[in-house]
Design a binder for these strands. Sequence first.
DNA 1: AATGCAATCGGAACCGGTTCCAAATCGATC
DNA 2: GATCGATTTGGAACCGGTTCCGATTGCATT
Lengths: 332, 332
Amino acid sequence: MNKTISDIAQMAGVAKSTVSRYLNGGSVSVKTKQKLERITREAGYVPNTFAQSLKAKRTNLIGTIVPRLDSFAAAQTMTGIDEEIRAAGGQMLIYNAGQDRERELEAMQELARQKVAGIILMPARVTPEHLRIAEAAGIPVLLVGQGSDKLHSVIYDDHRAGLLMGRYVLEQGHRRIAYLGVTEEDEAVGRQRKAGFAQAVQECAGCEVFYYESSFKIADARLIAERILEECSPTLIVCATDNIALGVVKAAHIHGLSIPHELSITGFGGYEVTEIIHPTLTTVRFPYFEAGKLAARLVQRLAAGEEVEWQTILDVELLRQESVDNLNIRSL
Amino acid sequence: MNKTISDIAQMAGVAKSTVSRYLNGGSVSVKTKQKLERITREAGYVPNTFAQSLKAKRTNLIGTIVPRLDSFAAAQTMTGIDEEIRAAGGQMLIYNAGQDRERELEAMQELARQKVAGIILMPARVTPEHLRIAEAAGIPVLLVGQGSDKLHSVIYDDHRAGLLMGRYVLEQGHRRIAYLGVTEEDEAVGRQRKAGFAQAVQECAGCEVFYYESSFKIADARLIAERILEECSPTLIVCATDNIALGVVKAAHIHGLSIPHELSITGFGGYEVTEIIHPTLTTVRFPYFEAGKLAARLVQRLAAGEEVEWQTILDVELLRQESVDNLNIRSL
DNA sequence: AATGCAATCGGAACCGGTTCCAAATCGATC
DNA sequence: GATCGATTTGGAACCGGTTCCGATTGCATT
């Protein structure tokens, strides 16, 4: 049913090499060019991608491995990647790892099998296994969100994000603070953000901080928040992600605590929802979309054999909104 | 650098047809089986997908065309599709149409070119162009969210959703209501939901309803909400999507209106955020995830040449939450 | 009209698999 | 040890393109 290049060649009475040359802009006489134009159009000819890739030994696909599809950060990053790749005439193949390291590794191998031009990976943690597979794959692998000294990466300044947030809330007069973080297995979110925050705390005398840990899920965060409220009744809870902050907001509502007067809350991420809820959530904006665009550009340059910067650190921005009370004013 | 089947054959001292047979579970003696097992492992052989697909003339890819990547509904649906396809050993290729009909059509053609096994399409509207391309593509196309008498589809009971919501809010005593909908070009969201709601209104005497229209964007909804509040000061605003409802919630906060006592608000969708915000949003839950799973199953069966039900209507569920005031109690 | 050069074209090989068919091998039986 | 049938194997064709190379054609020049 679908026409092949040989069919076209036969219909036009030329060799298939001529048809191929016509299709790829090789030297073809005006006469045959016109004839082939007509025939390919009438026959509705579309070249077979596999045959092309088989010969070319490559594709214009960029594989993207995301931890999950239904997260704001992942969605924004994917949108950025997609926009950039499409502009360059390529395509994005999305692989959902479902927050499972095994599947992340499988995905890399599978994408390598499919000879994608490059892989963009958003891992929770970079393990030696990742490096091994990336090396064996023989195609460029670029990390987003987590750095590595062995792979190219686009990362956020998580340390500075923590520092900015820490300094800001201390400025606002908070001295009894709970930090609700995530596992330290996550270098960027788990360690760096916390480290930045801890540095800010160190710069300030007489501040008591209680560290807690949650998963990335809203429901989990909410449960831990209840424990925090019982155990140490802080004036503020700094949450490692906006989603965690949403869980804490929920817990505060349930406890009947008004935000920010009875409990201040902050997040990290800059999710759209932070501006929608009331009060709006003070957070640090991470440029997910821009990271996606940049990652796509870089991985395409890598695929083309160019040298690119080893690591790009994207800047973050503190968004001062309504969920943090200014204790200085109140105590006047 | 990458080994081919011929390399393996040479190393093992057999014909490449034997290697192929070994790989695909054909009849091979125990001895050569063991030898090939060892050699393929040591050589790290991985078959070339293109060569396989070229011969097989098909892939195990399912193409998914979404209107946008950063929407709750799309993310949930994609997650469902992905889960189901992965379980069947297939893969999902995501195409982001960016809410642009032209790109939707392009995507269909491009996916057809790549000989995907089937296409899952989430269109805002089904046009004759869609049907034409779907027909020409020669591969199964399944719609999610919008129906058509020419294509297989998985849809939601939008009419019933509107009806349920309408009846519920009328039960709660609301008689001065604004309905903030979307363009009627969108058959499901724009027409059916509104029609269901309108039917409920018809069943009830003495109810005044004001119809407005917004885009799907939170920011737009917020602007229109301000106009609604000025123009007709309803006791309740029924919004065609949860995102629109979020925009209205925002506007209400800005106007200092307390929800639900001074203004009740409802949405449609059942986005996660509706349970997080305070007050929680009364809405109708749409089974996006289940729709994705079902769509994936169906499109795979279609790809296998099986007959499947032409249209599946998934049921919706009213979620009574806190954003609707019960006027009956108040007026006692 | 013969010559030379560039533009155009056809044929064949190749990419890396799968599959068909015929040939070779094997073990069991007589 | 010859015969038979079942297994196993090798060879070749094929999928649908691209590309190399040599042959043909066209055109301008002498």
